[in-house]
Design a protein around this nucleic acid. Structure first.
Length: 114
DNA sequence: GGCTTGACGCTTA
DNA sequence: GTAAGCGCCAAGC
């Protein structure tokens, strides 16, 4: 039940992102575009990252399970948060290849499958 | 009120 | 397969 006038973006946009990311299962990953699509607009993929960027570390949102469409960590690998994301994913069983990419075809998570 | 920034995606070369 | 360009919209200043 989606109203055509129900704009995806707007006040409380970040909370919607968090709500979707929270449903990502452990050991699975999703992309910014997927989260944005669930919210109704694949175009707002950037805002997903933006919302996660403003996310506190003590949050219960598994932000580390959100990566870009290429299957790589958008952040630079030498940044503390980038390494943290990879470490957290590996702790959940998500392995990275030589190019720091994950197997999206196998680990990609879909909102409607929850 | 307007301009700039930004954890990206898609299309084209 | 990789590289570069355009688009898209909220938040911050």
């Amino acid at each position: 039940m989606l109203d055509t006038e129900n704009k995806v973006v707007g006040p409380g946009w970040q909370e919607r992102v968090y709500g979707v990311v929270r449903r990502v299962q452990s050991g699975s990953v999703t992309t910014y575009g997927d989260v944005a699509s669930v919210l109704g607009s694949p175009r707002v993929a950037r805002h997903v990252g933006w919302a996660l960027a403003a996310l506190p570390e003590d949050s219960d949102v598994p932000w580390h399970r959100v990566i870009n469409a290429k299957g790589t960590i958008s952040f630079r690998g030498d940044t503390p948060r980038g390494m943290l994301q990879r470490a957290l994913l590996e702790a959940e069983g998500v392995l990275f290849d030589e190019r720091s990419r994950v197997d999206l075809k196998r680990l990609r998570w879909r909102y409607e499958l929850s």
